[in-house]
Each structure stands twice: as structure tokens, then as C-alpha cells.
Amino acid sequence: MLLYPRHLFLEPTFLAQGWQAWLPGDGPLNLEIGCGYGHFLSYMARRFPEQRFIGLDIINKILLQVDRRLQREGLDNACVCKLDAVVALRELFPSGSLANIYILFPDPWFKERRLKRRILRSETLPELLRVLKPGGCLHFVSDDADYAADALQLLEACSHLKAVPFPDLETRTKYERKWLEQDKTIHRYAYQLVDGPEPALWPGYDPRAAILIKDWDAEKALLFWQNFQPLKALNPNQVLKFLACYRSGESLLLKGLLADTGSLALEFWVEIDPQGQLTLAPHSCLPRLQNRARLLAELADLIQRGIPKGL
């Protein structure tokens, strides 16, 4: 199964049930970040049919291949998602929800100025630990000596983790086979979370009304937009900005952009009905979990500030 953002941010069944909607059952949930061609993911799903596996990647062409492979092999305990890992970790996994995280041959981002794109670094480690359940394991494998050394230093310095033997797995990913043929040294680390937050439940979502726009004509809507558009909400890690405003009858449609530190910016659409109720437009994609209600609340405040006096 190949899941796109709309399946994860908009699908009512997923919003209500979480991963249960796409991967039924109560088996442990495992995540592979950067699943590539899916050799490891399909191997694990075959070997551990009682467990559930999620693969993340951002290259659609490859994900389509993985999806075909999973379908061909009848592996309905695994799925792949086209999503940035930082966004996925933050928005799609409650605290303590994962039994294992696998990061196999991640891009080492050699250049100094691109080191911040590495998936395992000091800024992302807290989030990786948050989503692991106590006793869960973080697995890291790399052929790049520098990245492996940095990762080892980071993992060793973390008081919540203890090193455990890397599991004996018979599969080799495409890159692993390639590096082994070239006699490269492969660095394999596994660290277990010794303590962590109590597993959290899938959270709810409660939109709230914002403004009354009934009887607004085109002129009033334009006045609102001219006043509102320059505003943006800022907090230390996020920028929320609006790019365009559309009107249909008595409803407004706002096109927004949410930029988070260290992840791809997300474009989203919010519809405001004549009663002032904010809802995500059907095409939209917006972070869920902890941030979603807060973002809509920030948006509501922003809109209030954007209404000109006397309107």
C-alpha cells in the first residue's frame, strides 16, 4: 500500500484511528526511514508477519515499485508513505508508538553546509526517542565512516539509550550489497531506549470558529485580504504565512504555507464558511497531532488581527 499525504492528513478513518486504519491489527509498529527499493521492508514484513511495518521515502517512482512488490508478495502488514521523515515523525506518531526504527544507509550529506539534512543528528534525536516505546530500538547502518562516527558519538552520549547487539538479519539492501562488493566497512549500531514517555493515545482534533463573514461582498473580502495577507504567525520553529485568498459565494479559501525548521514547507488550504468555521479544504495537507489544533488556533487569531476595523 502506498500512502500519500492526503491519506495521512485527510482520510477520516486514519484521523479517527491512526495507523490501525491502514495496518490493522495490534502487532508492534516498526518504521524504516528511507526505505528505498524496499528490500529490507519486504524482508521484515515476510519474516515477522505478526508485526506491522511502515517505510518512508520521498521518491515516488521508487515507492511505486515498493508498493508493487508488497502487493505481489501479499504483504498487507507493510505500507510505504511518500513523506518527509521529520514531518512524519512529528505529526504521525504519538509518543511511545514504535517498537523499532531502522535507518539504513541514509544519505550522509557530505558537504559541511548540508550536514543539517542528515536524518540522525542532535536536532532529530529527541523526536526519534519520543516516538520509540520504552525497550524499543533504534537501528543505524552506514558505510560512511564520518557519518557513522558522528552517529556513534551522538548515540553513546545519550543517557536514555544503551547499546545492544545488532539483530541477525539475513537480508542485504541494494546499497549494502554494493558496498560489500567494494569491500567497504559497514557500521551497524543498535541502541535500546531504556526509559521514555508513557505511550500516548491517538489525539483528537477540534476545529473552532474564527470569524463571521456573512454578507461580505467582493470589496469587503479584498479589504480583509489586503489587511490580512502581510501578517504571519511566528514561533521559534515555525512560520505560518498566507499566499492567496479566493472567494466563492459567502465562503473564503486561503492558501497557506507552513515552514518548519529542518523539514519541507507544506502548502495547505483552509476554507472559511459563512459561519466562520475553519476547515481544511479537501485538497489540503496540514500537520496533525499536537500541532494541528494549535495551528488552526493561531490561524484564527491571525484572521482576527486581519479584520479591518468597522468591517
Partner: peptide, 9 residues
């Protein structure tokens, strides 16, 4: 259909 505030889209 939605018309942009500047009526250009």
C-alpha cells in the same frame, strides 16, 4: 469555483 481577491485567478 473560487475567484482570487485580485480577480486575476
Amino acid at each position: 469555483s473560487w475567484l482570487s481577491s485580485d480577480q486575476q485567478e
